[in-house]
Design a protein around this nucleic acid. Structure first.
Lengths: 204, 204, 204, 204
DNA sequence: ACCTAAGCGAGACGGTACGTCTCGTCTTGCG
DNA sequence: CGCAAGACGAGACGTACCGTCTCGCTTAGGT
């Protein structure tokens, strides 16, 4: 829509109006939708509150009322998009991690969530609230994903002395770095190699 | 200087003038200095070509003449600040990597270069030229640092089948992720643990 | 104010804000006032949209929103300043014209409107929109002022074959040329002489 | 040449060099030529010392060395172009003035000198040196052209009480105003009418 | 025959202003 | 009170010229 004089999405019918003295969920949805579409289409560079308001046929204050910053909106969108991530439990850590890692890379590569997450990271470098949100999010993801490692430890597959969070950190760091440098197209073989590299070293 | 109506640095004497039809290194230095100071003091959020020009007592066109973009200026400053990085060759890969990694984290933690590099990564997420520069820089650093691994392979310390660049990628990814999430305060023990984790898995 | 580091006018109280989704007349007034003051104080050479914005404590886009060009702003100011111009109807054409011409020259000489009009003419030489505005303005003024001549024709004071607009053109040209060459100090006698020169030749 | 990446004129051969410790007339000519071409092609709006230097393959200081200001360059060019103006002496003042006026309007209409003179007038509104030069030029032209009127007075064609300079002023003002408002296409009949209007009123 | 002095093209310098963009805040008027 | 709309002050963007300065050269003219 960059070449369009108006970047507004086509109105799906009559103009949306206030529904009285309470939050209008249709507006919130329209804003989230518009934000996601802009990120997908034009990337983070063209993402601005102004552009979102334009596309969503929403007033800027409406956005600021509900999301205090650009980062908050980004995090909100990311959370809602990141469904369907595999949570494998094959009984073999190397397979679990390979499935997890390949799924994450594919998700970032094939859905807008990659662009969105890149944007969040970028935003976090100059916006402290975004940085805080990102740190919290990362902690939560590591805590969750390190279950795979804990299960492997319970099975006696790897040494019990390994710190699951630190170990998972390594795997996730790899994914992040790939995302941030635009090298998400890691072949399955390379993923497997990297993963087994980790797993081998963790053996008892 | 944000509280000052003029963000200009104090003039160190007479005004700097042109030195003829060739580049004035004093101007370039003043610009780089001003840019670094702004990043250090006010952070990336306040970093703008306009602010740099003001602080350096330089014209904006002078900056654009020599650095085509904000990213180019950032990369330039980063390059110059990142001198004195250790390039260890102890004869033992785990030690080499630990020294390298700890040195990198300390540099980022204790000098402005950490903030600068974060800014570059952030910029790269919305500016394609910055992304390109970052990719090229990363390639160069990996190529250089992976010498440590190649030397270990030559010594027979680790398997010759390991791809040095991919291996180094893992180490650098770890550092990046720490930088971007504000967790640079990795203890020496943790560094050693992470590094030996890698090295163990690479053994023949 | 040229010697001041900030050319801003003193703020008359609290900062001026938006008054909602409609034009704020206080802003428009402040802009016109600042523009007039700059022209009066520093002349057309120092007149710039940037300077006006600075002095009026207004954003540049606010100016561009309402006045598409420097010329439009100049014309607007000129219009508002040029009130109280005599529109004589003494029953004797020579007297009418003398009063009109002397009034015009005095207005230009003694109020800022002379400097402003000079600026408009200058601007019109390199800006087509200004040229258009000037042409339209001149047409309107000639149409209006030539009423004096039409009245004289109706009275039978001068030949009916005279084209009122062309005749008025001569009188106004004289004033313009005086303005542009800084020779506004025409004595009453000289004005009368020039005018009667015209009127004599138009007699039946 | 506005669409050309370089607005430079094609070099007529080898590069022009210094001819030692004296002014190089070839440079001066190239500068004047380039200036005239820019005015003719792109108008006063695109006329800048920078553009002239570019087109003339000359250094900016070379221009500033010989012409202290934009206005000085403009006046120089105008002087050289304004050759071949008729200086009629038919024995009948109305014819003399008609020939003079029509010639002046045609010259301005059909040669670049019109655009150049408009530029000088515009420049004079914000540049005092240009204003001075313009005033001096106007005086000289009036002094010269009013010879026509003096001759008519000597012949007894018009009253001897008329001030030749003031009278000529009227004629020239008419031309100026036409130039500045882009109404140079005055028909011969209209010129004759305006002129005889003057002459009639000057009769004894 | 050398040397100096000036002119030359080129282009970098610190600046100012341009016209556009987005920021986050504010207010209106409708529902 | 929420909403769409949009004006507001602010200020960065990247570009065009300004007028000044210095470079490295070329050549003429004085010694």
């Amino acid at each position: 829509m960059s070449q369009d004089s108006t970047d507004a999405a086509p109105r799906p019918g009559a103009a949306r109006k206030s529904i009285g003295a309470k939050r209008n969920p249709a507006s919130a949805d329209a804003i989230r939708k518009a934000a996601a579409e802009i990120l997908e289409k034009d990337g983070y560079a063209r993402f601005s509150i102004e552009a979102v308001a334009r596309r969503a046929h929403a007033g800027k204050p409406t956005i600021y009322r509900w999301w205090p910053s650009k980062a908050a909106l980004l995090v909100d969108i990311y959370h809602r998009q990141k469904q369907g991530m595999p949570d494998p439990d094959t009984g073999r850590l190397a397979d679990d991690l390979a499935i997890f890692l390949e799924g994450l890379l594919r998700l970032w590569r094939e859905t807008p969530s990659g662009a969105i997450f890149r944007s969040i990271i970028a935003e976090a470098q100059s916006d402290e609230t975004a940085a805080e949100a990102l740190r919290a999010y990362l902690d939560e993801r590591i805590a969750h994903s390190s279950q795979m490692i804990r299960r492997a430890q319970a099975r006696g597959e790897i040494a019990s002395g390994i710190d699951p969070a630190s170990a998972m950190d390594l795997v996730i760091s790899l994914a992040w770095c790939r995302l941030l440098t635009g090298r998400l197209d890691m072949e399955t073989a390379a993923v497997k190699a990297a993963v087994s590299l980790f797993v081998e070293s963790w053996r008892a």
